[in-house]
Protein backbone atom coordinates (compact mmCIF):
# COMPACT_ATOMS: atom_id res chain seq x y z
CA UNK A 1 0.00 0.00 0.00
CA UNK A 2 2.83 2.37 0.94
CA UNK A 3 6.30 1.91 -0.47
CA UNK A 4 9.41 3.94 0.25
CA UNK A 5 12.33 3.30 -2.11
CA UNK A 6 15.82 4.56 -1.27
CA UNK A 7 14.54 7.66 0.51
CA UNK A 8 17.14 10.08 1.83
CA UNK A 9 16.64 13.36 3.66
CA UNK A 10 19.52 15.75 4.36
CA UNK A 11 19.45 18.88 6.52
CA UNK A 12 22.70 20.52 5.40
CA UNK A 13 25.43 18.05 6.32
CA UNK A 14 23.14 16.03 8.62
CA UNK A 15 21.61 12.94 7.06
CA UNK A 16 18.32 12.47 8.93
CA UNK A 17 17.04 9.59 6.79
CA UNK A 18 19.57 7.49 4.93
CA UNK A 19 18.62 5.43 1.86
CA UNK A 20 15.58 4.00 3.62
CA UNK A 21 13.24 1.53 1.95
CA UNK A 22 10.13 0.04 3.48
CA UNK A 23 6.79 -1.41 2.48
CA UNK A 24 3.53 -1.33 4.42
CA UNK A 25 0.85 -3.86 3.45
CA UNK A 26 -2.81 -2.91 3.28
CA UNK A 27 -4.69 -3.54 6.53
CA UNK A 28 -1.67 -4.04 8.77
CA UNK A 29 -0.43 -2.17 11.83
CA UNK A 30 3.19 -1.28 11.15
CA UNK A 31 5.44 -0.03 13.95
CA UNK A 32 8.49 2.19 13.81
CA UNK A 33 10.82 2.55 16.78
CA UNK A 34 14.28 3.85 17.51
CA UNK A 35 16.16 6.10 19.91
CA UNK A 36 15.48 9.85 20.09
CA UNK A 37 16.77 11.61 16.99
CA UNK A 38 16.69 8.40 14.95
CA UNK A 39 14.64 10.08 12.22
CA UNK A 40 11.24 8.51 12.97
CA UNK A 41 9.19 11.72 12.83
CA UNK A 42 11.22 12.88 9.82
CA UNK A 43 9.98 9.80 7.94
CA UNK A 44 6.41 10.91 8.73
CA UNK A 45 7.19 14.44 7.57
CA UNK A 46 8.52 13.06 4.27
CA UNK A 47 5.53 10.81 3.63
CA UNK A 48 3.01 13.55 4.47
CA UNK A 49 4.62 16.21 2.28
CA UNK A 50 6.10 18.45 4.98
CA UNK A 51 9.67 18.01 3.62
CA UNK A 52 11.14 17.36 0.20
CA UNK A 53 13.48 14.35 -0.20
CA UNK A 54 15.52 12.18 -2.54
CA UNK A 55 14.13 8.78 -3.53
CA UNK A 56 10.61 7.64 -4.24
CA UNK A 57 7.46 7.22 -2.17
CA UNK A 58 4.42 5.47 -3.63
CA UNK A 59 0.93 5.12 -2.17
CA UNK A 60 -1.44 2.60 -3.72
CA UNK A 61 0.98 2.22 -6.60
CA UNK A 62 1.12 5.93 -7.44
CA UNK A 63 4.06 8.23 -6.63
CA UNK A 64 3.31 10.95 -4.08
CA UNK A 65 6.64 12.80 -4.39
CA UNK A 66 6.22 16.57 -4.39
CA UNK A 67 2.62 16.56 -3.19
CA UNK A 68 1.78 19.09 -0.46
CA UNK A 69 0.30 18.00 2.91
CA UNK A 70 -3.30 18.80 1.98
CA UNK A 71 -2.94 16.83 -1.28
CA UNK A 72 -1.55 13.85 0.64
CA UNK A 73 -4.62 13.98 2.94
CA UNK A 74 -6.89 13.92 -0.10
CA UNK A 75 -5.02 10.83 -1.37
CA UNK A 76 -6.02 9.04 1.84
CA UNK A 77 -3.07 9.42 4.22
CA UNK A 78 -3.78 11.10 7.54
CA UNK A 79 -1.47 11.68 10.49
CA UNK A 80 -1.20 12.90 14.05
CA UNK A 81 1.64 14.62 15.89
CA UNK A 82 3.27 13.65 19.18
CA UNK A 83 1.97 16.88 20.72
CA UNK A 84 -1.75 17.15 19.88
CA UNK A 85 -2.28 19.83 17.24
CA UNK A 86 -5.76 21.11 18.02
CA UNK A 87 -7.68 24.35 17.45
CA UNK A 88 -8.03 25.71 21.02
CA UNK A 89 -11.04 27.99 20.56
CA UNK A 90 -13.01 25.67 18.27
CA UNK A 91 -15.41 23.10 19.71
CA UNK A 92 -14.75 19.38 19.45
CA UNK A 93 -17.45 18.91 16.82
CA UNK A 94 -16.22 21.87 14.74
CA UNK A 95 -12.66 20.54 14.87
CA UNK A 96 -13.81 17.16 13.62
CA UNK A 97 -16.02 18.83 11.00
CA UNK A 98 -12.92 20.55 9.60
CA UNK A 99 -11.41 17.14 8.84
CA UNK A 100 -14.77 16.11 7.39
CA UNK A 101 -15.02 19.20 5.15
CA UNK A 102 -11.41 19.39 3.95
CA UNK A 103 -10.30 15.74 3.80
CA UNK A 104 -11.87 13.51 1.20
CA UNK A 105 -14.48 16.08 0.21
CA UNK A 106 -16.06 13.90 -2.48
CA UNK A 107 -17.69 11.85 0.28
CA UNK A 108 -18.68 14.79 2.51
CA UNK A 109 -21.57 14.16 4.86
CA UNK A 110 -22.44 16.01 8.07
CA UNK A 111 -23.39 12.61 9.59
CA UNK A 112 -19.70 11.73 9.54
CA UNK A 113 -19.06 14.12 12.44
CA UNK A 114 -21.50 12.25 14.71
CA UNK A 115 -20.09 8.89 13.64
CA UNK A 116 -16.52 9.95 14.42
CA UNK A 117 -17.45 11.55 17.74
CA UNK A 118 -19.19 8.31 18.69
CA UNK A 119 -16.25 6.23 17.53
CA UNK A 120 -13.61 8.10 19.55
CA UNK A 121 -16.04 8.45 22.46
CA UNK A 122 -16.07 12.26 22.78
CA UNK A 123 -19.86 12.63 22.97
CA UNK A 124 -19.83 14.24 26.39
CA UNK A 125 -17.25 16.81 25.25
CA UNK A 126 -18.64 17.52 21.77
CA UNK A 127 -19.57 21.15 22.58
CA UNK A 128 -16.43 21.82 24.66
CA UNK A 129 -13.65 24.05 23.38
CA UNK A 130 -10.72 21.83 22.47
CA UNK A 131 -8.38 23.94 24.61
CA UNK A 132 -10.26 22.74 27.70
CA UNK A 133 -9.79 19.00 27.02
CA UNK A 134 -7.35 16.86 29.02
CA UNK A 135 -4.43 15.16 27.24
CA UNK A 136 -6.36 11.96 26.47
CA UNK A 137 -9.26 14.04 25.15
CA UNK A 138 -6.91 16.04 22.90
CA UNK A 139 -5.31 12.84 21.58
CA UNK A 140 -8.68 11.28 20.84
CA UNK A 141 -9.76 14.51 19.16
CA UNK A 142 -6.69 14.59 16.92
CA UNK A 143 -7.30 10.97 15.94
CA UNK A 144 -10.98 11.84 15.38
CA UNK A 145 -10.13 14.80 13.13
CA UNK A 146 -7.79 12.53 11.17
CA UNK A 147 -10.51 9.86 10.84
CA UNK A 148 -12.98 12.48 9.66
CA UNK A 149 -10.82 13.02 6.56
CA UNK A 150 -11.69 9.38 5.59
CA UNK A 151 -8.13 8.04 5.45
CA UNK A 152 -7.04 4.72 4.03
CA UNK A 153 -3.89 4.95 6.12
CA UNK A 154 -3.44 6.59 9.52
CA UNK A 155 0.02 7.51 10.80
CA UNK A 156 0.26 7.97 14.56
CA UNK A 157 3.31 9.74 16.01
CA UNK A 158 3.97 8.59 19.60
CA UNK A 159 0.30 8.48 20.58
CA UNK A 160 1.14 7.15 24.07
CA UNK A 161 3.60 9.93 24.99
CA UNK A 162 2.78 11.43 28.39
CA UNK A 163 -0.08 9.00 29.03
CA UNK A 164 -0.70 6.92 32.15
CA UNK A 165 -1.41 3.18 32.12
CA UNK A 166 -5.17 3.66 31.96
CA UNK A 167 -4.88 6.11 29.05
CA UNK A 168 -2.47 3.82 27.21
CA UNK A 169 -4.96 0.97 27.49
CA UNK A 170 -7.77 3.19 26.14
CA UNK A 171 -5.65 4.42 23.22
CA UNK A 172 -4.46 0.91 22.33
CA UNK A 173 -8.06 -0.25 22.24
CA UNK A 174 -8.98 2.69 20.01
CA UNK A 175 -6.11 1.96 17.61
CA UNK A 176 -7.13 -1.71 17.37
CA UNK A 177 -10.73 -0.73 16.61
CA UNK A 178 -9.64 1.73 13.90
CA UNK A 179 -7.68 -1.04 12.25
CA UNK A 180 -10.18 -3.87 12.67
CA UNK A 181 -13.58 -2.15 12.48
CA UNK A 182 -12.74 0.57 9.95
CA UNK A 183 -10.15 -1.42 8.00
CA UNK A 184 -7.65 1.43 8.11
CA UNK A 185 -3.96 0.61 7.71
CA UNK A 186 -1.94 2.07 10.58
CA UNK A 187 1.68 3.09 11.02
CA UNK A 188 2.67 3.87 14.57
CA UNK A 189 5.83 5.44 15.97
CA UNK A 190 6.20 4.58 19.63
CA UNK A 191 8.77 4.36 22.40
CA UNK A 192 6.80 1.86 24.49
CA UNK A 193 8.01 -1.51 23.20
CA UNK A 194 5.15 -3.29 24.96
CA UNK A 195 2.65 -1.27 22.93
CA UNK A 196 4.46 -2.07 19.71
CA UNK A 197 4.83 -5.77 20.40
CA UNK A 198 1.14 -6.06 21.31
CA UNK A 199 -0.23 -3.96 18.45
CA UNK A 200 1.97 -4.35 15.42
CA UNK A 201 2.52 -7.10 12.89
CA UNK A 202 5.71 -5.64 11.48
CA UNK A 203 8.23 -3.56 13.39
CA UNK A 204 11.00 -1.42 11.91
CA UNK A 205 13.87 -0.26 14.08
CA UNK A 206 15.95 2.65 12.85
CA UNK A 207 18.93 4.55 14.16
CA UNK A 208 20.36 7.76 12.67
CA UNK A 209 18.01 7.42 9.76
CA UNK A 210 19.16 3.91 8.83
CA UNK A 211 17.28 0.62 9.13
CA UNK A 212 18.66 -1.62 11.87
CA UNK A 213 16.13 -4.40 11.66
CA UNK A 214 12.65 -5.09 10.31
CA UNK A 215 10.29 -8.00 10.87
CA UNK A 216 7.87 -9.57 13.34
CA UNK A 217 8.08 -7.74 16.71
CA UNK A 218 9.06 -10.91 18.60
CA UNK A 219 12.04 -11.46 16.31
CA UNK A 220 13.00 -7.81 16.14
CA UNK A 221 13.09 -7.28 19.90
CA UNK A 222 15.48 -10.23 20.25
CA UNK A 223 17.77 -9.08 17.46
CA UNK A 224 21.32 -8.40 18.81
CA UNK A 225 21.63 -5.25 16.70
CA UNK A 226 18.42 -3.86 18.19
CA UNK A 227 19.47 -4.73 21.74
CA UNK A 228 22.80 -3.01 21.11
CA UNK A 229 21.03 0.03 19.65
CA UNK A 230 18.81 0.41 22.73
CA UNK A 231 21.14 -0.77 25.51
CA UNK A 232 24.58 -0.13 24.08
CA UNK A 233 27.40 -2.66 23.50
CA UNK A 234 28.56 -4.81 26.40
CA UNK A 235 32.04 -3.29 26.33
CA UNK A 236 30.45 0.21 26.59
CA UNK A 237 29.00 -0.62 30.02
CA UNK A 238 30.94 0.81 32.89
Amino acid sequence: MLKLSNVTKRFGSLVAVNDLSLEVEKGQIYGIAGPNGAGKSTIYNLITGFYSYEGKIEFEGKPINGLRPYQIVKRGISRTFQIPQTFPSLSVEDSIDIGNRFGNTAAYSRKRVDEVIDFVNLNRERKHKTGTLDLLGKKKLMIGAALATRPKMLMLDEPMAGSNAHEIKALMELIRRINQELGITIIIIEHFMKVLTELTETLLIIETGTEICCGHPAEVTNDPAVIECYLGREDDQG
Binding site: V73, F87, I98, A148
Partner: peptide, 25 residues
Protein backbone atom coordinates in the same frame (compact mmCIF):
# COMPACT_ATOMS: atom_id res chain seq x y z
CA UNK B 1 -18.62 29.37 5.79
CA UNK B 2 -16.15 26.66 4.85
CA UNK B 3 -13.49 29.28 4.07
CA UNK B 4 -14.15 31.04 7.38
CA UNK B 5 -13.74 27.78 9.23
CA UNK B 6 -10.43 27.17 7.46
CA UNK B 7 -9.26 30.73 8.25
CA UNK B 8 -9.97 30.21 11.96
CA UNK B 9 -8.23 26.84 11.93
CA UNK B 10 -5.10 28.18 10.19
CA UNK B 11 -4.96 31.17 12.57
CA UNK B 12 -5.01 28.83 15.57
CA UNK B 13 -2.77 26.04 14.35
CA UNK B 14 -1.25 25.97 10.84
CA UNK B 15 0.32 22.50 11.29
CA UNK B 16 -2.98 21.13 12.61
CA UNK B 17 -4.78 22.70 9.64
CA UNK B 18 -2.42 21.09 7.12
CA UNK B 19 -3.00 17.57 8.40
CA UNK B 20 -6.78 17.79 8.11
CA UNK B 21 -6.54 18.70 4.43
CA UNK B 22 -6.58 22.51 4.42
CA UNK B 23 -4.58 24.16 1.64
CA UNK B 24 -3.01 26.81 3.83
CA UNK B 25 -1.36 28.57 0.88
Amino acid sequence: TRTGMAVRAVAQNPAGAKIVGINIG
